[in-house]
Each structure stands twice: as structure tokens, then as C-alpha cells.
């Protein structure tokens, strides 16, 4: 069929671009609020900052319905296995955003109780600095993630960082033993 026979306009493009565009534009975060940052996350979702502009105002309470886990706050040794369980329940493709210094690196609480960075438990895509990050910082982190999703590959998400250890060609699924083992009693 020749082009001039068509009665409608159309665009051509690769399927991959379409998928990535769709993933970027309909990301649903799981509400995983832990501490101070959760309050700022709520504030980001509320009227003044309005995450709805990015199609992200619906915080899903079930991890099965969520694509993005915003780890908002400090992760304690007691919470670590729970966090890993919630992460494992999320459907692929999934992303993790470490919000605040406590989730990113332990922050000022370098002690026995806090996991020194949530990237020891789950692969993290974007780190948002701040204690707590202001809603603007969170939105910047989210936009960074959007950009990452839009420009990245759709089949293999992670090529470096903590994620690479979990998704290897030998074991296409996540390991049986969660890495969220309690990190032992410090001596």
C-alpha cells in the first residue's frame, strides 16, 4: 500500500521508545514512608508541590501495584528484612529511590541500629540528598529517574552498582536468600 492511499496521519518510531515513554509517564510509587522524609514526601504529593504534574500522585499501598519504591527515611536493622520483602513483592520493572541521607548512606546515624545505606539491601537507582530533602529535591530526583527510564535500556535495567549483583545472566531472578540478612551485632 502506498502512503498516499492512507486517510490518516501516522508516526513511525521504535517500539522501545514507546515502551520507555509509557513507563516514564505512568510511574506509580509505593508508599514506603519511614521517618522524617515521609512527611516531606507527603508534602510533595500535596497541594503546594503537586506530584500529580508528573503523573505520580497516586501512592500505591500495595507493592504489587507499584513501580517505584521511594525509601523515605532511615532503615533500621529490624526494618531491613521487611523492606526487602516489600521490594521482592513489586512487579518488574521496578525502581528504587533512596530519599534522604539516612536511606542513602546512614547519614548522621552511623551506629548499630541503622543500615548504612539502603543500597546494601536493594539496588538503588537515584539518591536524593538532604536531611530531609525538600519536596523540590525529591521532585528533581524523580525527574532524574524519569530521564533515566526514558534513555535507558528496557530489557536490562542495571549495568552497574548494587543492582548488577542481583540480576546476572546466571540467575535471571532475584536470589533465593535475601541480602537483607541482619548485618550482625557490631562489636
Amino acid at each position: 500500500m502506498a502512503l498516499e492511499d492512507l486517510s490518516h496521519n501516522f508516526l513511525t518510531g521504535s517500539l522501545e521508545d514507546l515502551v520507555k515513554w509509557a513507563r516514564r509517564a505512568s510511574m506509580w510509587p509505593a508508599s514506603f514512608g519511614l521517618a522524617c522524609c515521609a512527611i516531606e514526601m507527603m508534602a510533595a504529593g500535596a497541594a503546594d508541590f503537586d506530584l500529580a504534574r508528573f503523573g505520580m500522585e497516586v501512592f500505591r499501598n500495595s507493592p504489587r501495584q507499584a513501580d517505584l519504591m521511594i525509601v523515605a527515611g532511615r532503615v533500621s536493622q529490624k526494618m531491613a528484612p521487611v523492606l526487602r520483602q516489600v521490594y521482592d513483592q513489586m512487579m518488574e520493572p521496578k525502581w528504587v529511590l533512596a530519599m534522604g541521607v539516612c536511606a542513602s548512606s546512614g547519614g548522621m546515624f552511623n551506629n548499630y541500629a541503622i543500615v548504612q545505606g539502603v543500597d546494601q539491601i536493594v539496588p538503588v537507582d537515584v539518591y536524593a540528598p538532604g536531611c530531609p530533602p525538600s519536596p523540590e529535591t525529591l521532585m528533581h530526583a524523580i525527574l532524574t529517574l524519569h530521564e533515566k527510564v526514558r534513555t535507558g535500556e528496557i530489557t536490562r535495567r542495571r549495568d552497574s552498582g548494587a543492582g548488577a549483583a542481583l540480576v546476572t545472566p546466571e540467575s535471571p531472578w532475584t536470589p533465593e536468600v535475601p541480602t537483607a540478612v541482619r548485618l550482625g551485632t557490631p562489636k
Binding site: 552511623n110 551506629n111 548499630y112 541500629a113 541482619r182 557490631p186 562489636k187
Partner: peptide, 15 residues
């Protein structure tokens, strides 16, 4: 958990 964290002979566990 092993030990009682706020005891003075229990290290702060700094990494």
C-alpha cells in the same frame, strides 16, 4: 539481636 546496645561496654557500631 545479641547484646544490649546502650550498655557502656557495647560499641556504638560505627561503620
Amino acid at each position: 539481636w545479641e547484646g544490649h546496645p546502650l550498655r557502656k561496654d557495647y560499641g556504638i557500631g560505627r561503620v
